[in-house]
């Protein structure tokens, strides 16, 4: 069994503020997990805002270097050392970003990004071949080249932009896709079509996806494994269904309790049990703790009694 991606004890600390009041934020603390090459999977990262999900994704993409620890893709450090290696890495690991409204340069037409991707990573020269590759990718996500060509970002809605961004990432046929909240800005129906698309990419094309989301329901629906993060720490990790059906860590439980349900539509229930919130908040800053494994295969962070 060969590993596709290996994240080994990775931490990232940011220094913030001026010269006098220097504060450091531990955006990611001691994260470890790995993806196998033979079994493509959807690996989900869930967590509150600012818990370090994006930072972790950026490190995997080689856009940020870990403060400690290492990340390897197919045995080599991510990002690539030489230009050739870097291009090969970028063709193999493609990102989908969080904010569709920021995904493309507002002053430029959208198709230029698709075209550039097709030309550089597929090595296509011929105009019709490039356009065919672009159109194919756009068709996969429910758009077409005719709709996108010559359009500026402000002429498309958020959902259209996000689909165009995914289409762009799909052009080089990457084995690993890093999707940072790809569905948080699109409606339920479209969300399902994108999520189904990610699922199809895994099942039919063998693409592994690191799927970052706030949406527990879609995570449950498509992912194989997941990690739940709180303030830079992994608090629970395991099989997606096992964890979400019966979360153990207080923060995981709070997450699940906060999911808005529709079965009591119209009753206006918005209150969360304040004790749950208090407990989860306390653990966010609780010192240390470590991940221990449970009989059902999951890892849960437990803390020294205080």
């Amino acid at each position: 069994m060969t590993t596709l991606l290996n994240v080994d004890n990775v931490s990232k600390t940011f220094a913030m503020g001026g010269l006098l009041s220097r504060k450091t934020t531990a955006a990611v603390q001691n994260a470890s997990f790995s993806l196998a090459a033979e079994t493509p999977e959807i690996f989900t990262i869930i967590g509150e805002s600012g818990s370090g999900k994006t930072t972790l994704a950026r490190m995997i993409l080689g856009l940020e270097t870990p403060t400690t620890g290492s990340i390897t893709f197919r045995g080599k450090p991510v990002g690539g050392a030489t230009k050739v290696e870097r291009m090969a890495f970028m063709a193999a690991v493609q990102p989908v970003f969080q904010n569709p409204f920021e995904a493309f340069n507002p002053l430029k037409q959208i198709d230029r990004y698709l075209e550039s991707t097709a030309r550089t990573f597929l090595g296509l020269k011929d105009r019709t071949a490039v356009e065919r590759a672009m159109d194919e990718a756009l068709q996969t996500v429910g758009l077409s080249l005719a709709e996108v060509k010559g359009r500026y970002p402000h002429e498309m809605s958020g959902g259209q932009l996000q689909r165009a961004a995914i289409a762009r990432a799909l052009i080089p046929n990457p084995p690993l896709l890093i999707a940072d909240e790809p569905v948080s800005m699109v409606d339920a129906s479209l969300r399902m079509s994108i999520v189904n698309l990610l699922k199809a990419l895994r099942d039919d094309f063998g693409v592994s996806v690191i799927y970052i989301t706030h949406d527990l329901a879609t995570a449950y629906y498509i992912s194989n494994r997941l990690i739940i993060m709180q303030r830079g720490r992994i608090v629970e990790m395991g099989d997606a269904r096992t964890v979400l059906e019966n979360p153990e860590h207080p923060y995981s439980r709070l997450l699940k309790a906060s999911v808005l349900s529709t079965e009591d539509a119209g009753d206006g229930k918005l209150a969360t049990n304040p004790d749950m919130v208090a407990l989860a908040t306390r653990l966010a800053t609780a010192p240390g703790g470590q991940l221990v494994s449970r009989p059902d295969g999951r890892l849960v962070r437990v803390y020294e009694p205080v």
Binding site: A103, P106, Y113, T117, T120
Partner: peptide
């Protein structure tokens, strides 16, 4: 640090192209 710059990077554009075509208009 804008997302579109990263999009351009992962679309395989060279630094020169990003500077001259993505950033120069600004």
């Amino acid at each position: 640090h804008r997302e579109f710059t990263r999009q351009a990077v992962f679309a395989g554009m060279s630094p020169a192209k990003i500077m001259l075509e993505e950033h120069l208009p600004y």
